[in-house]
Design a protein around this nucleic acid. Structure first.
Lengths: 143, 143
DNA sequence: CACTCTTCCTACCAACTAAGTAGGAATACT
DNA sequence: AGTATTCCTACTTAGTTGGTAGGAAGAGTG
């Protein structure tokens, strides 16, 4: 799995919003950029994606900023990854299920689907709240 | 997970070698390229990697070609992927364990490690022989 | 030896994507 | 009116990916 800078920044920003906006108040992009060391103008594009995906709510003007649209324990890592990165698993740019194999390679499709399922299980069962309290779910790092 | 053309071709080539060289005879690069529809000169570079990784044995000259160094049930999909693609999981280009988070993002490292473990479990438990007989292992495609 | 076949190896090219920047328009509050 | 902030588009830059070209080196055959 390749986690792009974009995906990584998106997760860090979401965590910072969740942590900073505890009482429902708004967090500014500039503050997120500083506390997580992310280039501001790059971050703005990412925040836009997150808002379009319905994960963030934004407000302009003097006391503007961003806030989560749902409580932190109802937003998973998978939600964030899919919002900024598209499909979790791709084969030569295509979604796993339509890789188009023939001959002896036919069995590969099932492998990619199994991998996809394994990744989804992890990222869809971990919420932002899990990560903040940090006794998260029982994912034993196997290597 | 992003499966590059290079990784995909490598797996298909290995499967074709395993299938074609059943009795221990050598399979030519040109034949692999044709049967799996892979650009020949691109494939040659990939075969070189596979040989350097110790998965293939090659022979030059008139009756040259490639053969597996181990039986097909002792070579896993993970072996092939690592031979041509390096680490299975990277975060912004770095291996998962040294992503370097601070503040509220600290918990992310564990997520990437869990994902890495989940992927490794799948690809390291599937052998080339599994894929050829095609009743492979019981990976239920979950999504 | 001369010839042929095939792997080996290096260098190169084109297209794409990722990462980051710049600058202004729209909106909200005072 | 003025200021602060999000919003949005276009652009630049650098690296990676996919693919090509051309020959050197080795292995067998007559």
């Amino acid at each position: 799995m390749y986690v792009s800078a974009r995906s990584d920044y998106a997760l860090r920003a979401m965590l910072a919003v969740a942590a900073g906006g505890g009482g429902g108040e708004l967090v500014k992009a500039a503050s997120l950029a500083e506390v997580q060391d992310i280039p501001l103008s790059f971050l703005q594009g990412i925040l836009l994606d997150l808002r379009r995906a319905g994960l963030l709510h934004s407000h302009r003007g003097a006391d503007g900023g961003y806030a989560l649209t749902r409580p932190a324990d109802e937003i998973t890592v998978g939600d964030v990854l899919r919002a900024v990165g598209g499909s979790l698993t791709t084969v030569r740019g295509l979604p796993a299920e339509r890789a188009g194999y023939h001959g002896v390679a036919a069995g590969l499709t099932d492998v990619w689907l199994a991998v996809h399922g394994a990744i989804a299980t992890v990222v869809d069962s971990t919420t932002l709240a899990n990560l903040l309290t940090h006794h998260s779910t029982d994912h034993a790092p196997t290597t």
